[in-house]
Design a protein around this nucleic acid. Sequence first.
DNA 1: GTATTGATCTTCT
DNA 2: GAAGATCAATACA
Length: 172
Amino acid sequence: GAFVVSEIGGVRTVAQLVETEAYVGPHDDASHAAERLGRTARNAAMFASGGCAYVYLIYGMHWCLNAVTGAAGYPAAVLLRAARPVWGVEAMVARRPGRPERELLRGPGNLCRALGVDRALDHRPLDRPPLWLSPGAEIPAASIASGPRIGIVRAAEWPLRFWIRGDPHVSR
DNA sequence: GTATTGATCTTCT
DNA sequence: GAAGATCAATACA
């Protein structure tokens, strides 16, 4: 339900989150900051105190955006997986030519591309331009579904993916 | 709608 | 050298 706002390349885009995944600490073996991996150049942002972005490249071609939520030195983050276009749809379409509106922000790689997010935003604060979060409508607990996270093998059974039940913008 | 597979490159072993 | 918090094109049903 929270809003993600970006001001990148001179355009503002606004999206409302409908799907996220939690990566809950060093004991979470699916996390890039799991204890067995330790701190590296890539995951450094996850070890910062909460409120900044963690952006990484996956499969050589897609950016993924996380909101870091842990305390300093205790790595945790929320992967932003899907959202509903709210404002700046033209700019999103310009970044995803030919895509129907409902697919613009469906999936973490698509979300980053439509919002203009890339490595330049890694480790940047999420409470000011060019990329920030804003509280949105409160989603009733009954409307929130949860299940296993996508695309992982370790700790795959942990039900840490959350989405708005029935929302057409949810991935998969 | 589901299943399969190639694209592409950073990171870590 | 292999795997990876993915996507889209293709081939079906």
